[in-house]
Simulated assay, not measured.
Amino acid sequence: MASQQKFEGWVGLDKDSAEGKLVWQAYDPKTFEETDIDIEISHCGICGSDLHALRSGWGPTDYPIVVGHEIVGKAIRVGKNVDKKISVGDRVGVGAQSGSCLRNSCRECTHDYEQYCQNGQTTTYGGKWPSGEKAQGGYAKFWRGNGHFVFNIPEGLASEDAAPMLCGGVTTYSPLKMGGCGPGKRVGIIGIGGLGHFGLLWAKALGADKLVAISRGTSKKEDAKKLGADDFIATQEEGWETKNASSLDLIVSTVSGANIPIMKYLQLLDVGGRFIQVGAPEDPFPQFHPFALIAKRVSVEGSAIGSPKEIEEMLQLAADKKIKPWIQEMPMKDANKAIVQFEEGKPRYRYVLKN
């Protein structure tokens, strides 16, 4: 039962855990509060963030840590003060964020921008709850956290498909909506991986007039076409930025390498175009010249995950449009094998662990 004092899951004890050295053991969940929900986990997606955290890639990680923030399962305990219509037995999910200040005085929290709350946030793992207790994630049997960030999974959407949408999916859905993706828009998605494949699926579902997949080589060209791309740009080919200059209105970049050719990417934008970065590298981007922005009034922006409102909207769109991400299920017991293969770039295009 999730009401037990200890939970069990795959625990990272140090940087070596990123090399497939997670240890299955007991750990302390947060103390249950009446705003919390306990979830019996059925599925948890593997996200690139998990590897960054396990190896302390974005800064020192507070070990021990249980990663995983694409969680789907059954609500088995619902606090009486949960602010959503969730009942025991409901199929629910939680993504990368599990807490924000939720104050009536907070501009972000009262305008559906909880993911940008400046008064304190709790990430689903690797962070701290206001009590000071550690937040632990979904490579486990159970999860406990704030019900405001837990979502009903719509009927018709499989649990294994919903799980990777809760971080990877909304990370691309949010900037596409922010950028006005839809009829009349020419959209480019940089990187055909776990995030990028979602970007193509969403852009197609939102009705983009033209959808272009952008990758270094052509090995994923056929996949991109199957995911909805109308055209394909391979950046290993000479002169790609000149040939395709001023051809896009919106670019969403999912790549996390530090040495991306951002000046060339900006050439692809038409007047008033927007470049939105969602991939999070461990090192800084190269500098770019302000004239790249001035000459065509283009903007460079960033976007982080998505708000609860956007997640609910995205899940319903996926159910309505019967959107099917490209996933590979693996047993939760094989989590170590899965993260090693993930790091080697083997998934096409998301791994989902199943209890």
Results as ranks from 00 to 15, higher is better:
V252A: 07
G156N: 13
R216V: 05
I323P: 00
G239H: 09
M263I: 04
Y63H: 10
A53P: 01
L211G: 02
V150S: 02
G257Q: 11
V88W: 03
F32R: 09
T61R: 07
G180V: 06
E241S: 14
F342N: 00
I233F: 07
K85H: 10
V11E: 04
R77Q: 14
H148R: 11
A208H: 09
K243D: 01
K74G: 01
P29E: 11
V278L: 10
L248K: 00
R348E: 06
L317P: 03
W58I: 08
W202D: 01
K185L: 11
Y113T: 01
Q118M: 11
G137V: 02
I41F: 03
F7D: 06
I41T: 00
P183L: 15
N119A: 09
V78L: 04
K210Y: 15
L250M: 09
K221A: 15
D249P: 01
V150M: 04
A318Y: 05
P64C: 15
E312N: 14
G93M: 06
P130R: 14
L315Q: 08
E8A: 10
S253T: 09
C109I: 02
C109T: 03
F7M: 12
S307L: 10
F198P: 00
D16Q: 14
P130D: 13
G59R: 05
K243E: 15
E329N: 13
A96H: 02
G59K: 03
A258N: 11
S17L: 04
P175H: 11
T110F: 06
R350A: 06
V255E: 02
E312S: 15
Q121F: 10
G89T: 03
Q121R: 12
D223S: 10
V212I: 15
G73F: 06
M263F: 08
M332G: 03
V11F: 02
T110W: 07
G345W: 10
K84S: 08
Q267H: 12
K128P: 00
E313Q: 14
A234T: 03
V271D: 05
I323L: 15
C44P: 01
E282W: 05
E312H: 08
A2P: 01
K204R: 13
K337T: 13
V11N: 03
S98Q: 13
I311D: 00
E241K: 12
L315Y: 13
G180E: 11
Q341D: 12
W129T: 04
F291G: 08
L248T: 01
G257C: 09
W240D: 00
M330L: 15
Q118S: 14
R77G: 13
G179M: 10
R91V: 14
G272V: 08
H111E: 07
G73C: 04
S100C: 07
K185M: 15
A258D: 13
K141F: 06
A338L: 10
I71Y: 02
P29M: 05
L248E: 03
L250A: 08
D283R: 14
K30M: 07
G126F: 02
